[in-house]
């Protein structure tokens, strides 16, 4: 029977006219194509955010130095100078959760329910760990800045409150108002963009838990394939991909 269907399928996919109907010219199911298109549109949303951040940055004569802004890590004294340490940890967590996701997809290709369940569980753990790290970083910054977005909107804020965000070499005394405006912009964009990304991660974790429960209950085994794992996997890798760009734009450049 399997033999007969395989022949039938190859006959169908070997039609000379790709767009004549009756099959996907891309050999991809509707649901997966739509996930790709959604991610493409989401890429432009994130891209627009990051590019507007870049515009504001080019617009400003001075700009906070990320190595001075993000210098803390949990379990270290608050004034420890540890640039890039904590965010590197977050990046590794997200990359590893992407790896466990692709391993879940791989297990799904072979109908290996145990493997899918195991790797999805690790991916969920990674996602929650990343969100925990972000919660710590947000709390830390909000407490030390006196709020989330809009913490530096007051034009009377003294320079002494913001000068530790800048590299000593950048001459902020010459641009006091621009320095204040730049600090406000920096944090508003930071909380806005990492918040939007964190929202995506949260949604991803919820979707992963749903897929995980379906896999445990044998829904996909009865259906005959694990393509839903693949679709959620595409979303999860995209979230990782966005973080690669957020990491570069906010912490490195």
């Amino acid at each position: 029977m399997a033999q007969a269907t395989a022949v039938n399928l190859s006959e169908t996919t070997a039609q000379p006219k790709a767009w004549a109907g009756g099959r996907s010219p891309f050999n991809v199911s509707y649901g997966k194509i739509m996930m790709w298109f959604f991610l493409l549109s989401d890429a432009f949303t994130f891209g627009a955010f990051l590019i507007s951040y870049g515009t504001k940055r080019y617009f400003s004569a001075v700009w906070p130095d990320p190595n001075h802004v993000f210098h803390s890590a949990p379990f270290f004294p608050a004034d420890a100078q540890l640039p890039l340490l904590f965010v590197s940890l977050m990046t590794f967590i997200l990359i590893l959760s992407s790896v466990t996701m692709v391993l879940a997809v791989h297990a799904g290709h072979y109908g290996d329910r145990k493997g899918v369940v195991k790797w999805l569980l690790w991916t969920i753990v990674g996602g929650i760990a990343f969100l925990g790290c972000q919660a710590w970083e947000w709390t830390h910054l909000a407490l030390s800045n006196g709020g989330l977005m809009g913490a530096f909107d007051d034009p009377a804020t003294p320079l002494s409150k913001i000068e530790h965000f800048f590299a000593p070499a950048s001459n902020i005394a010459a641009y006091p108002r621009e320095a204040l405006e730049a600090t406000g912009n920096f944090f508003n964009f930071f909380f806005g963009i990492t918040g939007f990304h964190g929202f995506h991660v949260s949604v991803g974790v919820i979707l992963l838990i749903m897929v995980f429960l379906n896999a445990v209950n044998g829904t996909y085994e009865r259906r005959g394939h694990y393509e839903m794992v693949e679709k959620i996997g595409l979303y999860w890798h995209f979230v990782d991909l966005v973080w690669v760009f957020v990491f570069t734009c906010f912490y490195l450049l």
């Binding site: 269907t5 399928l9 099959r23 199911s29 290709h109 109908g111 394939h225």
Partner: peptide, 27 residues
């Protein structure tokens, strides 16, 4: 899943058609 034909799957569960379950990949 192997009892389905490609034609019925295109109108039904396309994912079966393209995710490789018909062609290969056993546990």
């Amino acid at each position: 899943p192997h009892t389905d034909t490609a034609e019925t799957l295109y109108e039904g569960d396309q994912s079966k058609l393209y995710s490789g379950v018909l062609a290969h990949h056993d546990l």
